[in-house]
Amino acid sequence: MKSFFLCSLLFLPAAGKVFLTQKQALHQVFGKQEMQSQTHYWDKKQREEILRLADANQVAALGKEFWQKDGRSAWWDTRKVRSKSQSLLIVIDPNHELEKILVCSFQEPLEYLPTSKWYAQFEGKKLNAKLQLNQDIHGFTGATLTARATVKAVREALAAHEVAHPSKPKSK
């Protein structure tokens, strides 16, 4: 328990514009039901597969996943937008479709944060070639870098989920 607390602390966003702590975000997603978590240490083959699926140049060496028995999973993602980071909790349903995105922290100036309607357009989307800006995802005027970082985060989360749980529907 103590070790889990330490681990959680290290995944918390840095001080700044924190809208939700990781614990609050998880509570919003999973409620009071029992939840489990796992840190995935990707091996070389898995990372190559995530790179391929996400169509990315670079992906994280490990992934932090939270899940419930109903098959829903949430992936924590922290990445740089311009020179500051944002932290998202990306929720994926049992059909490997994106359920929702919670913006937990945003360290860039808040005028570069898109509206909730913009984030809502990801809901129900699956990982495919069209899941990118100016295709299935509309850009957001004045917050292009945030939009790009968010699309990257979503693609990587969906790819990581696919690698971690290749069979569908997922059941744990």
């Binding site: 103590k2 070790s3 889990f4 607390f5 330490l6 681990c7 290290l10 796992q38 840190t39």
Partner: peptide, 14 residues
């Protein structure tokens, strides 16, 4: 160091 210890301990429980 804390992260490594906690992550490893968590993994060990599972």
């Amino acid at each position: 160091l804390c992260f490594v210890v906690s992550a490893v301990a968590l993994q060990a429980q599972q």
